[in-house]
Write a protein that binds this DNA or RNA. Structure first.
Lengths: 341, 341
DNA sequence: TTGTAGGCGTTATCAG
DNA sequence: CTGATAACGCCTACAA
């Protein structure tokens, strides 16, 4: 089961390695006869170019790196699906690393990928990320780089996002349309741009409807978990019995809140209407089913790879395309948790 | 931002590449003075070995390949988490590919990984897999290989599994303990070993309790989806009004069944008790909450990488360790869907 | 202690 | 049309 090399084929055929290489790669300047002989022997011996040698020679590995906060997550696993699919279609393999929402780990992962010399890097920032040095380093080295979802606006790279502010505003508007007037918000951590934008969307919708913004109705997650959803929901019930609507940063948190409301016999949507974000699968099967904002994970992943591919293609010509930002539309998915009047 | 090479350091210092290489790798036969100079310059110039060259030279890439049916899946995403974590700790990167439950794709992915010359392959088979050639090829080439979860028993490789038969039997025994006597089973597709084993566990539990096996109570999934769960649940209600228990191949299917039962006002667990498999997150938040079998995804992933690491280490010494099989314990997680009497 | 030389397998250049 | 030659960057006998 040994590996066939060009040299072996050349020796067997009594020709040079050069010619074998050319024949195999379809160069025109090889006689049909020689080509045929080479092809046949290569076939017979199951020749496969040694990718290590090819990498060294061509200075590329046809491998990209992907850094995300966590794999076991509805939205991100769909993004991965989109990325892997597109990558494969274009002959790229994907190395996946998790930051576990830690900035320190994230930096380490970036370093790892750079020294592995991947052809490009796709990344969604961790919640802790409030520092850009590692991203600047990627750009400075001229490594094709695309950010998606949780991005740093200041880094000059292509980006794939949704309009979080508008999406959040539409979620809150939906609650308002359903008659809510005292709307609480369980927001994401302080750093991520998308948590900030969603919070701003929340405020904007209130303002647009002449509802006063009350900071005491805003609760800030640290880890964005089911448990936090439960805990904040309890506080909402205890501290603000007049709250009649809740917008949560993501469905997981909203589901935690629903769980608590069910336990405390707080009627949803009658007493409090609830809307989440990202439209996780479970939201359609829980009771009451959860209204949410549809965020197309797979498409975002596909688009992110598409942009990266452009950059990688350009990089081969030593050029760098103008960074582009692709924004995906979102929409409200209405379910029972907001179905009233 | 150009890349530093050994050669450049050597030239700058007026010494040979060899000496630089040795100094950097901590060989003893370098004078402290030279070593210091080299270290300092390497540091200053941010020297990083070119991994392409190292790969070619050492014939390994410190990269492994992982092939799974789908990323966006509760169990598999947890397995990935475990694998990536361990891999990183041991200096390995992970390339992930999906088979999308297609044998054809799975074969393609294996071929891709082999020609990329990954140091090892981890794999869980697709539901379509009823043919072993590609797996035999991996083994024949002497590539370190570990199977997990959905495995082919006939391939001589290390494996990480749970005792699906026993776990399924315990699930069904649980239903019986709760008073069920007419127990339906929505099983997995015909090929996967774990679907077969779970089916066998179902039969065994019936037999152990003197309950006659009735093949008309067994429904076979093709795609193992929520929708199939719903569809089969409807058939169960229509075709077998006397059924009082249901064991589903996985929680997603069980949740589909619950959804249909809720819709049809079939009381769970009073009229039909339901138990799933794998203990997906959503099972604890749906209504009624779903009893299930806990299957430790992350641990399985970690163990699989551990075995692969052993094989890779051995492979470096041209040896091949005796294949081992690690089996993880499972347990019944009781929730409302089986809570009666 | 240091350096020379050869090689890993492929690809590109350029001369024949 | 073919092939010799030289990289790519690193590693490691072995020689000095």
């Amino acid at each position: 089961m040994k590996e066939t090399t060009l040299k072996e084929i050349a020796e067997q055929l009594g020709i040079s390695v050069t010619t074998v290489s050319k024949a195999l790669k379809g160069y025109p300047d090889v006689s049909p006869k020689t080509r045929k002989a080479v092809m046949e022997l290569a076939e017979k011996w199951h020749y496969q170019p040694n990718s290590f040698a090819v990498n060294l020679r061509t200075r590329e590995s046809r491998t990209i790196g992907l850094i995300i906060p966590e794999v076991a997550h509805h939205f991100f696993s769909n993004v991965i699906d989109g990325i892997i699919g597109q990558a494969e279609q274009h002959g790229y393999l994907v190395i996946i690393l998790q930051s576990n929402e830690s900035l320190e780990l994230e930096k380490k992962q970036v370093a790892l990928l750079m020294q592995k010399r991947v052809d490009g890097i796709l990344m969604s920032l961790s919640n802790e990320s409030n520092d850009d040095d590692h991203l600047r380093e990627i750009v400075a080295r001229g490594i094709p780089f695309v950010q998606f979802d949780k991005i740093s606006k200041l880094i000059p790279s292509s980006k794939v996002i949704i309009d979080d502010r508008a999406a959040a505003a539409s979620a809150v508007q939906h609650l308002i349309d359903k008659g809510c007037r005292r709307i609480a918000h369980i927001r994401g951590p302080v750093n991520p741009q998308n948590a900030i934008d969603r919070f701003m969307g929340y405020k904007k919708a209130l303002q647009d409807n002449g509802i006063a913004f009350d900071p005491s109705l805003v609760y800030t997650c640290e880890r964005v978990t089911f448990e936090e959803g439960r805990a904040f929901a309890a506080r909402i019930v205890d501290e603000h019995p007049d709250v009649d609507g809740l917008f949560a940063i993501t469905d997981l948190v909203a589901v935690g809140a629903l769980d608590l409301f069910n336990e405390r016999k707080v009627a949803v949507p009658e007493r409090i209407a609830v809307i989440g974000f990202s439209n996780w699968f479970m939201s359609q099967v829980i009771n009451p089913s959860l209204s949410s904002i549809e965020q197309p994970g797979r498409e975002i992943g596909e688009a992110a790879f598409g942009l990266l591919l452009e950059e990688m293609t350009a990089a081969r010509e030593q050029t760098r395309p103008q960074p582009r930002t692709v924004s995906f539309p979102t929409r409200v998915v209405e379910r029972k948790s907001t179905q009233r009047n």
